[in-house]
Design a protein around this nucleic acid. Sequence first.
DNA 1: CGTAACTTTGAGACGTGTCAAATAGCGTGG
DNA 2: CCACGCTATTTGACACGTCTCAAAGTTACG
Lengths: 222, 222
Amino acid sequence: MRDLQTELCGGPVSRHDDAISIGPKAFPGTRMRFARNEEVFGESEPVNHVYRVVSGAVRTIRFTSDGRRQIVAFHLPGDLFGFELGAAHGFSAEAIADCELVLVRRSLIEKAATESLDVARALLQLASDELHDAREHALVLGRKGAGERVAAFLLSLAERNRTDKELDLPMSRADIADYLALTIETVSRAFTQMERDHAIALPTSRHVVVRSRSALEQLQAA
Amino acid sequence: MRDLQTELCGGPVSRHDDAISIGPKAFPGTRMRFARNEEVFGESEPVNHVYRVVSGAVRTIRFTSDGRRQIVAFHLPGDLFGFELGAAHGFSAEAIADCELVLVRRSLIEKAATESLDVARALLQLASDELHDAREHALVLGRKGAGERVAAFLLSLAERNRTDKELDLPMSRADIADYLALTIETVSRAFTQMERDHAIALPTSRHVVVRSRSALEQLQAA
DNA sequence: CGTAACTTTGAGACGTGTCAAATAGCGTGG
DNA sequence: CCACGCTATTTGACACGTCTCAAAGTTACG
């Protein structure tokens, strides 16, 4: 569990144990554990750290004015999160499962960004990637039906996991529903339907076997 | 129109005639006119320029795999758009009405960003703001009903126009529908309903008078 | 004025939400 | 190890909102 990839810097943002690499620089951090459902930081709290997921999974969430929950993003091992320019967080973060995170003081990164153009560039790339994801998400929420959203979600998870065939979902149906802006029941029905169509198999509700990637891709496109 | 106001930089991104200011630097550009519905740039075309709206209005759009149109954002006078890190545009841009734009060569800005930390910082701020908007948009599309979306849209337009009471909509119902992920008919019905509720008046279909801001805010929250 | 594009209104179909209940899974303590 | 109770998930029936299709009305412009 401890020997997570000591791979070399693959892109502008990569990983080292107990540190976060941004562009050419590796920032020393502290490793912390969070229990399932524990809050990592809260909305409108000051932004003091940037985080990297070592193990487990994290969700970032917002609430509408009338109290409905919207999951902004899921963060899996290797992902950075919590980086914001403003003084206060625009959303909160919670551990989906027990997890290990690396925390780096924001001031370290801010300072480096005012000294190194490569760091500044890497941060811009990071924000730009998040922007792309957010727009993709808006497109999915606006233009796709329930089945298409779930299919797209599974495909994107498969892509991130690098295991095209078998997926362990760290999150509950409720989390998926709040990410895709659906209800638990509708998400559940979408899974059942995909199973009936032989696109996936569900040995357990949290374990997905992709039987036919093309069927999923077709569903997603619908 | 032509006299170079040497106004001081108001924020990280501000404007000068025939130039685009990013942080401390003003980049010289060219002014161009585009006719209603003319394409400014196309999806997957190379990113050669950054644009600022001088007059008129622009929409940036994407298409889903099955051909449905989604408007990513509306750009009003003063707004920058078209800035992307990748080689190719992820969306296309079209003139909503006849408009004047200032174009600055991307290479100028890219170069400055590798020389000036303030420029790099301003670009990061720009991307960060766009990210915030995109997430807000995703929240609206995912969690709000038709009336709430239209109310939120009008309020955000009012905020941008700095005229809280009277709004001239440069875009058609079809554009609003494709921005809010609704149909033309549903958008039209929402307008009619808001008129019945005395939240707004519609002297013409493109001119909105805000009768009761609080009513709109209540509608938006629902 | 005449024509085309845009907007509004209406009626019915369809999909997702809501409410309710059954089932499965899982950790805890006996 | 089993029994229990809690949570998560699945399934069903029905309600509601938005889309679809159709048509009338309005506006802009040649």
